[in-house]
Amino acid sequence: MINLLNKELRLSAHLLSYLFLAFSLMALIPGYPILLSAFFICFGLFQTFQNGRETNDVLYSALLPIDKKDVVKARYIFVCLIQITAFILMAGLTSLRMVFFASAAPYMNNAMMNSNPVFLAWTLLIFALFNTLFVGLFYKTAYRFGKPFIAFIVASMPVICIAEVLHHLPGLEFLNTSDRLPLQLMLMLSALAVYVSATIISCKAAQRNFEMLDL
């Protein structure tokens, strides 16, 4: 698996998958739908799948002396590595904002979502959607990425809208404040559980589909 992961990082990965990690910085932008940062990070990962088709990555991998299902597992691990790196960056920036700039005017008067543990929870849900809908559906053919990415867009955009609307509803203001931290952290941990289980289930299904494919 180490060798396959090395291949993912050095041969398969598109440079934009790494560069788009910089979209994590959007967590600090006031007056902007900051959840789009998660979408852009997934868009960076999409470039690796597109690049893989252009470079015959799947065929190269299938001809190696490995178990075919490990090709899929290695790709999921790569995707998760990028997502977890983004999550850690966002979590660090969120902590900075909450500790040092919690009462700064741009954040206090922000009609949009501020970065807090609830924002991190929504981020994990967007990542879970990407892993389930895009990556999972991609491995039904191992070459079609258009429809899977449209499925991800169709599912993730309403989630981003709902996330921006919910904290305006009476009784749900706590979703966008810096107090009620324990409740917000609980929501984040629940989202983490959803992310982990959705990714594992999707990976196992993708492995089964990939093994049955004629390449």
Partner: peptide
């Protein structure tokens, strides 16, 4: 012909990865 993989990567980089599998 179908095995034309990673056309824009340096051969040395492709080999550095490939050799580990054998």
């Amino acid at each position: 012909g179908a095995a034309d993989c990673y056309p824009r990567k340096k051969i040395a980089d492709i080999i550095a990865v490939t050799r580990n599998f054998y």
